[in-house]
């Protein structure tokens, strides 16, 4: 008997159960949620913005893609960013953002499928980027949270290493609650991808419970909802 099975046997013996009794709890299910998210888009966007601002983010409201590109350029200028990393989009082509930044003399990095020999150099380049732009997969209105599913073209580093993040989300992907977003991403992607829920810039209250924004992760988080 392996060590694992020995411990499972001791757990089973502690439970005093030799055979299966009742099934695992019935589906508690998702909270019953209104399915009219699309109809409530404006309301959800406003709620998302309010919540994000409460946790230290800066919300630009609803923007078109072109307006988002212009905002990205403004943020780069305001934060004196000379280099930026732009992750692949979910609902639109992020080339638009990358080209806008490049035209304004920001060195732009576009992550793609990586070869092992380039790993260290790529990591160093990302670490030196001052601005990270990414389109989130979903957002949670009730908490002001972005949900980002990582892929080779959308690495987690974008929302970890740069000091400033500009994260956008399609307005129709702002869902009311956490349970909605977890269901929308779905078990399959949670089993195969790194997923992060991001609620504001990184923070701590480890010194006298006083809140300080910007610990290891980004210090500034700008956000917008993208309208069609």
């Amino acid at each position: 008997m392996s060590a694992f099975h020995k411990i499972i046997a001791s757990v089973r013996s502690a439970l005093e159960r030799k055979v299966d009794t009742a099934p695992i709890h019935p589906d508690n299910g998702l909270a019953v949620l209104p399915s009219s998210a699309a109809a409530r888009r404006a309301e959800l966007t406003a709620q998302f913005g309010r919540e994000l601002e409460r946790v230290g983010g800066h919300f630009y409201g609803s923007l078109t893609k072109a307006e988002a590109r212009d905002r990205a350029v403004t943020i780069a200028a305001e934060t004196a960013a000379r280099s930026a990393i732009v992750g692949a989009g979910v609902t639109f082509d992020a080339d638009l953002i990358a080209k806008g930044l490049a035209r304004n003399r920001v060195e732009v990095m576009r992550p793609d499928r990586l070869k092992e020999k380039d790993r260290a150099a790529t990591r160093d380049r990302v670490a030196n980027c001052e601005l990270g732009f990414i389109e989130a997969d979903y957002a949670i209105a009730s908490t002001g949270t972005f949900c980002v599913v990582a892929t080779a073209q959308r690495p987690s580093s974008i929302t970890i290493l740069p000091a400033t993040n500009f994260i956008v989300v399609a307005a129709d992907r702002i869902l009311p609650t956490l349970a909605d977003v977890i269901a929308a991403v779905g078990p399959e992607r949670f089993a195969t991808h790194r997923v992060a829920l991001i609620t504001g810039p990184s923070r701590t209250a480890d010194i006298e419970k006083l809140i300080v924004i910007g610990v290891h992760g980004p210090r500034k988080l700008y956000a917008a909802a993208i309208t069609p």
Partner: peptide, 19 residues
């Protein structure tokens, strides 16, 4: 309401992934 980061780890990276 929610902590700043909720991280989901499923396993090792794929060969072509940076992170």
């Amino acid at each position: 309401k929610l902590t700043c980061y909720t991280n989901f780890i499923h396993g090792p990276r794929r060969a072509d992934e940076l992170d």
